[in-house]
Nucleic acid binder design. Structure first.
Lengths: 201, 201
DNA sequence: CAGTTGACAGCACGATCGTGCTATTCTCCC
DNA sequence: GGGAGAATAGCACGATCGTGCTGTCAACTG
């Protein structure tokens, strides 16, 4: 049996379903009523777990961050320092986009467009999480430079920008355009990014 | 005086405001009531111009496409064939992202996330417009290869993928992350994309 | 200038939204 | 096992949603 109390268990079940729904329909598209029906709770029963819809939205993002760290960041950090770790970040990121519990793909990207012009704590949380993630990438690149895998004149933030851009396109081409060659396109671009970042041996 | 009838005039005024609102809040976030208030019409008076909300959404996208062609595609097609034209496409695209009549940035990108998992004619229209645009880019690249500006082994579709990805990141870094160095990051990446596409002189 | 067509407002509808309050039921601890 | 407290349901609220119908006033046409 679980070590969690009843409340914590259902709360987790709610957030699990909510994250899946938010990955497809966004944070605004997700309504309390629909979510309650989906989880098998009454609207008020579900609502009692969160003070407001805004709190629910932040809780969803918090759940997403925890999952992202568990699925993408942590595994990559167990890889050897340098290029292998950078590559692992990329690979796990691509897998993350296809996670079964995220039918709509990366939830951060899915909600970016609806939050980018709406100030408030939800937006703030998302921005912070993405900045942290970019920092993680840049740090991994810096380490790769230190290890001698990448050239010394590689700009870690620029590398992070371009890597991030490739995943954005991956999301767009796969989900919206349904381009069957998305995977190879993205991988090829990444290999070329690596290629021109490597130090001359 | 304008050659348009009364109905066409207000319809255009509606779509103008609607496009601006949709660029920030998306197509679903935009409500008929809010739009009517903004334009100074009654809800039903505005609604009479479009049979349904879905029709309105398609009309908005149609307006966006017309603007995009007028502001981005056509000017670039007047530039000399080859690399100058490719560069013009990029430059106009960046300017488009900052157009004053688009307070939320590129409307296509703004609505991509909410439409990518919602089948229907609105989504179909958006997908088609983006495919057309990618084709336009690829064609310009093919011409640049023919002119000898780009190497013969450059893949036009791959080029389009990477160029598209840079603009996606431009949108994300500027609008969500508010990174002040977005412009230089994007331009640097584009120059490097050009650099490695050029034929050896 | 008169008449017809079209643009728009007013109003109402059912549905759904987020959010409270009040019971009732269940869970956990002693 | 019984009692305290958490978990959930029931119900209601005002607001807003998209969408129709009906009337009225303006605009264009002959």
């Amino acid at each position: 049996m679980s070590a969690m109390s009843k409340g914590a268990t259902t709360r987790e079940a709610i957030l699990d379903k909510a994250l899946a729904l938010a990955s497809t329909g966004g944070l605004d598209g997700l309504s309390i009523g629909e979510l309650a029906r989906e989880v098998g709770l009454s609207k008020s029963g579900l609502f009692a777990h969160f003070g407001s819809k805004e709190d629910l939205q932040i809780a969803i993002l918090r759940t997403a961050v925890a999952r992202f760290i568990a699925e993408v960041v942590s595994p990559a950090l167990r890889k050897p320092r340098g290029e292998p770790r950078v590559r692992a970040l990329f690979e796990s990121w691509v897998v993350w986009e296809q996670a079964t519990f995220l039918p709509g793909g990366c939830p951060f990207l899915a909600v970016s467009c609806e939050l980018d012009d709406r100030p408030g704590p939800v937006r703030d949380f998302l921005v912070q999480s993405q900045r942290d993630w970019l920092d993680t990438i840049a740090t991994a690149v810096r380490i790769a430079i230190g290890e001698g895998h990448f050239a010394k004149d590689v700009d870690p933030e620029q590398f992070a920008y371009e890597l991030y851009s490739l995943i954005l396109a991956y999301h767009q081409f796969r989900r919206l355009l349904r381009d069957p060659r998305t995977d190879e396109r993205c991988r090829l671009a990444f290999e070329q990014l690596l290629e021109r970042s490597r130090s001359v041996a």
